[in-house]
Design a protein around this nucleic acid. Structure first.
Lengths: 257, 257
DNA sequence: CGGTACATTGAAGGGGCTCAATCCACGTGG
DNA sequence: CCACGTGGATTGAGCCCCTTCAATGTACCG
């Protein structure tokens, strides 16, 4: 396989290495699916609602958001995409994309044509299974956010969100043990959590006053993980449960037709 | 292929026939994946949070819910499964299932082992692509619910929910043009929409008072589709956008390795 | 130095919640 | 046939969380 931009696939590889039992060789196969890294400037769409697509994308660098804007201007952000995340599931699989994905920062993406994706299932079923699992993670994050917004208070939501970011960034090597950089405005966080920016400001302040977190500019430090986790009902959710089921892997080479 | 319980796969087939370009033969292949229909009594789990699974399930008859209960008893229902829906994505793809799925009514399910699923991608890529698309629909419904709960008022949510049920039931032949049977308590609806049962009661009453719907027992009739759709910002969301992208289909037989 | 974007804070209002009572349909056992 | 219990729907009163509107502060940048 060609040498390719090796460091760029590291976020995806790190994530899968931590959560699946794929071998280094298999991770390389997955990484080699990607073609032609392409820069995307801040505030440019990677995917635009209503358009047709024939490929998935991988976010190699930067941060992006999936969102929908209602007719009266209210916006709900569905998810934040971090380096190593697949972009385009499920939006791209529909006749016309169901929502937009926009780069929040300068970003780099790489595309994976559907045809290439499907060939993988025949060529390497174990890696194909991992793709399934990656999509499961996307769906599961929607579900977790649903629980968040549907049944948790504003304070719990903000606490949960900070912990989610910490874990996700840590897996891809972009966070220290207890701190990370969060280049998000409070309005953005509000649109993610179904709150107003004003209220996010108040709740962040409350978390600081309670000694649970420290925020200096964009730098966030969790000063009391236990307290924050208890507040957000966090342990069960993310910490250990996002591991791929071994049952997904085919036991041996698939039998002929 | 064996004759099998032909009418039982009809809900899934109807849905796919309406939203994809699969042929009747391909629909049969998809239907033949299922094995051993199994009855599940009311209030019994089909999938239990924390357990391991090696298969997906298809709901052939009845209604089921996916949900999570927080430590203090608050419950969020993630989704309602109707006949023809796949169950187990994404829950089953993780090391231990992320949430439970319980039958609300007496139900019939059928299992599809992962191995069987994966063989399909090699044997029949077009049908394999449809499986991908089915999972995309699950994820998209989570996203739609997220937008609902995050950025819509209680009245809009209830209106949106009734329209969603109407469309979903109509596709599988369980609703007339404008009416359907809804065997759901208001507490259930509340747990779906992130509201209390008391408030659901009030908002349903308001919809009735405004002449938008008529409710007699479990029978729901939409008396003003236009008005209800406008209230719920509905058109764009579900009506025509849940069609499978043709780009997902491989252009020809996959080339050999 | 003025302009823009973002965070912060206060005051007031409202949407949805909590608590509680009532009603109704239904099933069960006397 | 009726008394009783149960689960669900309805309605009212009061409260509180979050929103709205607005003003102020602050960093950054031309």
């Amino acid at each position: 396989m060609p040498p390719g931009p090796e460091p760029r696939i590291s976020a995806l590889s790190q994530k899968l290495a931590a959560r699946t039992s794929l071998s280094a060789a298999e991770l390389d196969i997955l990484g080699s699916l990607q073609a032609e890294p392409r820069p995307v400037a801040t505030n440019r769409d990677i995917i635009t609602e209503g358009y047709k697509y024939g490929a998935l994308f991988v976010l190699l660098e930067g941060i992006a958001i999936r969102y929908r804007v209602l007719h009266d201007g209210r916006r709900q952000i569905l998810n934040i995409a971090l380096p190593g995340d697949y972009i385009g599931f499920p939006a791209c699989f529909f006749d016309t994309a169901l929502y937009s994905i926009t780069a929040l920062t300068d970003a780099v993406v790489s595309s994976i044509p559907f045809a290439r994706l499907f060939r993988l299932f025949a060529d390497n079923p174990r890696v194909g299974a991992a793709i399934f699992w990656i999509f499961s993670c996307e769906a599961a994050m929607y579900a977790e956010r649903l629980i968040d917004i549907g049944r948790r208070s504003a304070l719990e939501r903000v606490a949960h969100f900070l912990l989610e970011l910490l874990i996700r960034l840590r897996v891809i090597g972009l966070a220290d043990e207890l701190s990370f950089r969060m280049p998000l405005t409070q309005e953005l966080i509000g649109d993610i959590l179904g709150l107003t920016s004003v209220h996010v400001s108040r709740k962040l302040r409350q978390l600081r006053a309670d000694g649970l977190v420290v925020i200096e500019g964009q730098q966030v430090t969790i000063s009391d993980v236990e307290g924050l986790s208890a507040l957000a009902d966090f342990e069960r959710t993310y910490l250990n449960h996002f591991r791929m089921s071994e049952a997904l892997f085919p036991a041996a080479a698939p039998p002929p037709i």
